[in-house]
Each structure stands twice: as C-alpha cells, then as structure tokens.
C-alpha cells in the first residue's frame, strides 16, 4: 500500500506540470483582457517544435524546451494580430487557432518525418543526497527539471503580475482598458505582450508533454489538456496559486488511472477525463451565487472585449 501511495504521488508532478504551465500561460494572457481558448493549438505547436528541435539539434532537451516556447510565442502572433489589431471575435479566433494548430502540426510532422520517432527527451534529475530519503526522496527529489522549476516559475509570474508596475499595467489593460488608455498605457502593446508571453508558457507545457513525458510526437497528442487548462483557469478564478492547486488535483486524478488499473480496479477513463469539467461547473455555480466584493472582480472585467477608443477623436 505504501508503495502504491509513493508511486502515485511521485508521478503527480509530471502529470500536473502541463496543466499548471498551460493554466498559468492562459492566466497571463487573459489578465490582459484577451479571452484565450486556443491553448490546445498552442500545446500542439509547442509539443511538435520541441520534438523537431531535438531531432534537428541532435539532443539538448533544455534548449528544445526554450525553442518550443519561443516558436509558440511566435505562433500566437497570429492570434494577437487577429484579436488585438483586427478586433476579431476572440472566441472565433481561438477556435481557429485550435484547428490551425492541429492541422499545421500534423502536416509538418508528416512532411518532416517526425511522426513516432522516439527521442532521448528530458531525463530525471536526482538531487544528490536527498533523492535517497525514504518517501520524500522519490516524491520530491527524483523529478525532472521542469517539475523542479514549476514553483519558481509560478513565484516569478505572480511577482510580476502583482508586485510590479508592468503587472499593474497589464491587469489595468484587462480590467479597465479605457482607464489604462487614459493613463497613457498602450493597451494594444500590453495585450500583444501578454498574449505572446502566455503562449510561451502554454508552448512550454506542450513541449513538456512531448519531450518530458511521451518522448516522441504523435498527432493530437495534447489530448484535450488545453481544454482542461481553460477549465482550470475558470476554476481558479484567474488566481495562479489556485490554478496550481487545481493542476495538482487533476494531475493526481490522471496519475491515479494507470495505478488503479494496475491493481485490477476498472474505472472508465472517460469518467476521469470528465471530472475537471465537472469541478469547473461546480465552481462556476458556486461563484455565481457568491456576491463577495473581491470575487466579483476576479474575472478580468474587459475579458473578451476588443478595445476601441471612444469615438469622436
């Protein structure tokens, strides 16, 4: 039983990291008021560019992760141009990004011959001295680099969002674009920045799927995790730490499936895949019945609204 438990918990960070990074990226993007539902597309782009980078460079998984984040960030420029400059409906632009991501990655993978090619990928990094500790060792100190960096990344992003002028301006652009504009903040510039920075994080999540976990590329390998990340953001009411907690929760559920099956219990996979959405629905119902002041302002007030200056200029 103890083995079962340790084995399960030790696997949670690997399952939780893609959710956590993707949700964090969406929070960054949406805090600027751009409704970003295209995470699924971003993750695929990130996953494929990670694999591609490794195959082209012949290794270097860390560099590949960074390249994947950068490529996804560039890919999100399409979304930024559509929503920020051209003021296209953000839901429709998001859907376009999902399908573009799916089609484009399948096409490139087939053309380049990257499909189902195993790669070395990201290895586990045992912390010397600590990884041999009983119970705590396997859970906390036998992970890969991305898992170790998860908390520092969150600390950094939260710090920038809540404790710097850049974060203040970014949140202002998402909550009151008119006020931000009047204060001399370039709404469009900040929205471009937020969309691209957010996409980099989501791309990193995707690359972790291919480089860190699967260690190969399969078409559509994000498998709905981008959608779960969207649900997580709503579940967390745009709060990064709550999103991390949610990611650990869903990662825990996902990590449980193979282990439960291994001891002979059959839980339908689709039931497990459904739980994040069920939890999200429950949170939304809960949030809608609460009239608390802070909760009322949790969602960026201008989310989904393209910014146009007042007429008569």
């Amino acid at each position: 039983m103890t083995d079962f438990f340790i084995n399960w918990v030790a696997n949670i960070p690997g399952f939780a990291a893609p959710f956590a990074l993707a949700a964090l990226g969406l929070i960054v993007s949406e805090k600027s008021g751009v409704l970003t539902l295209g995470a699924e597309g971003y993750m695929l782009v990130g996953a494929l560019s990670g694999v591609g980078a490794i195959l082209l460079l012949g290794g270097y998984p860390m560099a590949a992760l960074l390249i994947a984040a950068a490529v996804t960030s560039l890919f999100s420029l399409i979304f930024a141009v559509m929503t920020v400059t051209l003021r296209v409906n953000q839901v429709i632009a998001s859907l376009a990004i999902i399908f573009l991501g799916q089609g484009l990655t399948s096409l490139i993978a087939t053309r380049a011959g990257w499909l189902n090619v195993p790669i070395a990928g990201l290895g586990k990094l045992n912390v010397p001295g600590l990884s041999d500790l009983p119970v705590v060792g396997p859970i906390l100190f036998q992970q890969d680099l991305v898992c170790y960096l998860l908390v520092p990344i969150f600390v950094g992003v939260v710090y920038v969002l809540n404790r710097t002028v850049i974060g203040l301006k970014l949140r202002a652009v998402g909550d009151g674009p008119d006020a931000a504009d009047a204060a001399g903040v370039s709404v469009n510039l900040f929205r471009y920045g937020a969309v691209m920075a957010g996409a980099a994080l989501v791309g990193l999540a995707g690359a972790y799927l291919s480089i860190g976990i699967a260690k190969l590329w399969v078409d559509g390998m994000s498998g709905g995790r981008g959608l779960i990340a969207i649900a997580l953001v709503i579940f967390a009411r745009w709060h990064p730490w709550r999103a991390l907690a949610g990611a650990v929760l869903f990662g825990g559920i996902e990590a449980l499936i193979p282990r439960v099956a291994a001891i002979g219990l059959q839980v339908p996979q689709y039931f497990v895949m459904m739980t994040p959405y069920l939890a999200t629905l429950a949170v939304m119902v809960w949030a809608s019945t609460r009239g608390r002041e802070r909760a009322a302002f949790a969602m960026p007030q201008a989310l989904g609204q393209p910014h146009t200056r007042e007429e008569r200029h």
Partner: peptide
Amino acid sequence: YKLVKAFNAVENILLA
C-alpha cells in the same frame, strides 16, 4: 470616470 474597477484607489492613482 476613467477608473479600473477591480483596483483599489491607491492602485488606480499609481497607474495614472
């Protein structure tokens, strides 16, 4: 008013 409704007074003034 050109105010960010989710911010408190000090944050709004700092922004401006």
